[in-house]
Amino acid sequence: MADIDQIKIVALGPDDAIAGLALSAEAHWNQNEADWRYFLSKGTVFGVRDKGGRLIATAALLPYSSGNAWISMVLVTESWRRRGLATKLVDTCLDTATKLGLTAWLDATSAGAAVYGPLGFSPTIQLRRLRLEPGSTSAGAAPLPSGHLTEFITCDISAMGFDRRDLLRELEGRPGSRLVSSGDAMALIRDGRTARHIGPLFADSPVRALAMVGDIAALETGPLLIDAVANQDAFLKGLTQMGWTIERPFQRMRFGRATNPPAELPFAVAGPEYG
């Protein structure tokens, strides 16, 4: 077994997008090539290669505004797991964040939360990833009106406590993405590697949030994913009654000083890779 103390951690570049995608596909994650290219161009992605030059592990630090950053894409190929590579890469992200004066956030799986807690991360909100398969709802609904990106960004700032307008502009502008509105609810739908993703989703009430999800599902023909805020009990219960199934929980965690608390929680988030 190789001594990971001798492993060299390097900063990755745009040419590593396909290798990164292979890692996330191996883990059955939903990120696509566009996601990897965004992280590699807007954030700092650390990686480890084996002796043959193959990318075997990654972790990314994506800066936002007001001294905040997101850690994600923490991946290790199967044959190299349980050797401490993920911890070393997250430590590298944390060291970088600390030097830059950034509060670091991440959305952890149950296994990941057990690792990140001892590193100094504190739990905040919980999320639930749900999936809807094709045919789980009736199709044929009228197209939803387009939403206004400026208003959507304002809602996101209120929900996050900091500004992510560059990310939202990127996601909304991708081929296949749709920002939709029903007047008192707004949501972003975008492509993933295996399923379309709904989120962030903002609404005035659980009823309107559920109606928005139902309208979206009626217009989509493939599988859908949504990362719902667990505190939104009525919304989460309504999704399961509509045929959505819970795949896994995520625990949102913070490392560093507390920042501006969210004024109002969303009903669904942009995804564990983005927060």
Rank of each mutant, 00 (worst) to 15 (best):
A111W: 06
P272M: 02
F267R: 06
A25P: 13
F39T: 02
L85E: 12
D233M: 00
G173M: 04
Q251D: 11
L265M: 14
T92N: 09
E133D: 15
S205F: 00
R174L: 15
R37L: 05
P123D: 09
L55N: 11
P272L: 03
R174E: 11
D15N: 11
R54G: 00
G84P: 03
D163C: 00
A25F: 01
S24A: 01
S177T: 11
G47S: 10
G199Q: 10
R54M: 00
Q241V: 04
V180N: 10
F46P: 02
E151P: 11
E133W: 02
D35V: 01
L168P: 14
K42Y: 12
A258K: 11
W105K: 09
N260L: 06
L225S: 01
T98D: 14
S110E: 15
L89S: 07
F46W: 13
R248P: 05
G256Q: 05
I7L: 06
V74G: 03
H197F: 13
T109K: 05
A114Y: 12
A185T: 08
S72Y: 03
P261T: 04
T58F: 04
K8S: 11
S65W: 12
A27D: 15
P145F: 01
Q251E: 15
T109F: 12
A60C: 05
G43L: 01
E264F: 01
D233Y: 12
S182K: 06
P14F: 04
R128Y: 13
W36Q: 03
R252W: 07
P143K: 05
L12W: 02
M73D: 01
G112V: 02
F46D: 04
Q241G: 06
E133L: 05
R248V: 11
L201W: 15
T150P: 14
D163F: 00
H148V: 06
I157N: 09
L167R: 02
L119S: 11
P145R: 13
A195W: 08
A104L: 00
V207M: 07
S138H: 13
T58W: 01
T245A: 13
A187R: 10
D95P: 01
A230M: 14
A217E: 10
K237Y: 09
L236I: 05
L102N: 04
L94I: 08
G214Q: 11
R37K: 13
W244G: 09
I189P: 02
S181E: 07
D15G: 07
L102A: 00
D191Y: 00
L40D: 03
P249Y: 14
A234R: 12
I4L: 09
G67L: 00
R129L: 10
R208L: 00
L225N: 07
R83I: 02
R83N: 06
P223H: 13
R248F: 14
L23R: 03
R257T: 09
F250Y: 15
C93F: 09
S65F: 11
L61V: 02
I246L: 08
L168C: 06
L75S: 05
T150F: 00
R82G: 00
P145N: 12
S122V: 02
